[in-house]
Amino acid sequence: MTDKLIRAIAADGGIRAVGVITTDLTEEARRRHKLSYVATAALGRSMASGLLLASNMKKEGSRVNIHLKGDGPLGTILADAGVDGTVRGYVQNPQVELPPNDRGKLDVGRAVGHNGYLHVVRDLGYGQPYSSTVELVSGEVGEDVANYLVTSEQTPSALLVGVFVGAGGVTAAGGILLQIMPKAVRDQSLVKLLESRVSQLSGFTPLLLAGKSLRTILQELLGDLDLFIFPESQDVSFNCGCSFERVLGALKMLGSAELQDMIEKDEGAEAICQFCGEVYQANENQLNQLIADLRAE
């Protein structure tokens, strides 16, 4: 299945639903960062969550930044997603591996850590970004982001994200977000209904592995609640805005003395983008040009 995002409403506009498939982009992140199995699952869930949160933003250029910092061995996990369907991210300790949990699944909760914080920043494309921090609930990512939505944005939400990764790489990844809209938030029966239906699912990736499409999944969950799936779908992809020009700009900020030291010791400079793993090489002539620019300024 091609990576995509779809939107829907149900219950006379009282429920907002978004589904996303992120298999290919999660595999690209795994390959770029050389991620372990559990690191792939943690980052993949975070990137899918970021895309789901960004899906309700309106202004071009809007982005959501999800930052998890638990007491587990993976360290910091960061995902940055845009309303345009692009996402990127990284794991501080990408090669950490853990044995499966007692259910035989990747132990993302222990790898992230049960104690720590989830920090979310929403850049609306104008004014000051909105940020909020909540304590981790489980480290499983989906539960933590859902708790953020309820705690910080006062929006009753059910979020299910997952990644299935085997010896050959990522074969299924994505998620679904169901939210009670303000007009229906007092309808406790609707809230309980959503919670019940999501809790009965064994996970998101088993649905994809069974060959079900996003539309089929939403239809099975909400089809009896006057479901309307918007016909337009959105492509989503792993994309980083780094470039060699930005790297040169960052090197220039180091100053002439540091640049000269790089020339004398290394005959150039190497920079690696933390978000995508792209390696950039600046040779001696390029560093000398930066020094000349600094002196001219």
Rank of each mutant, 00 (worst) to 15 (best):
R122Q: 12
L294Q: 11
D102N: 14
H67Y: 13
H33F: 08
S213E: 09
Q281V: 14
V112T: 11
V161S: 03
M57V: 01
H114Q: 14
A257T: 11
F230Y: 14
I15V: 15
P231D: 15
E153T: 05
A146D: 05
I229R: 05
V185C: 04
E267T: 04
R63M: 13
R103Y: 14
E153V: 09
A292D: 12
R63V: 08
F164M: 06
L53N: 02
Q200V: 04
T216V: 09
G249F: 00
L149I: 06
F275R: 09
K265G: 00
V279N: 11
P129K: 07
G116P: 02
I9M: 13
A111R: 05
S131K: 14
Q274S: 13
M181V: 12
K69M: 12
R215N: 10
R295I: 08
Y117D: 07
V134W: 02
G249T: 08
L52A: 01
D123Y: 07
L5H: 04
P99A: 13
P206T: 03
N93A: 09
L43F: 04
L209T: 10
V236F: 03
Y130V: 11
S233L: 00
S199A: 14
Y126I: 13
E153G: 03
S55L: 08
F228R: 12
P156A: 09
M253N: 15
A10V: 06
L118K: 02
G241T: 07
A250D: 04
I77T: 05
L35M: 11
N101D: 15
D187R: 14
G125C: 10
K59D: 10
A41K: 04
L209D: 03
N101P: 12
L118E: 00
I66F: 00
G169E: 07
I229K: 03
D266A: 07
M47F: 03
Q92N: 07
R122E: 10
F164Q: 08
T205R: 07
L5C: 02
N147M: 12
K105T: 10
L248A: 14
E297I: 09
S189I: 08
Q179S: 15
C240W: 00
G277H: 05
D261L: 12
S243T: 13
L106D: 02
V83Y: 01
S62G: 13
S213A: 10
H114G: 15
L5A: 06
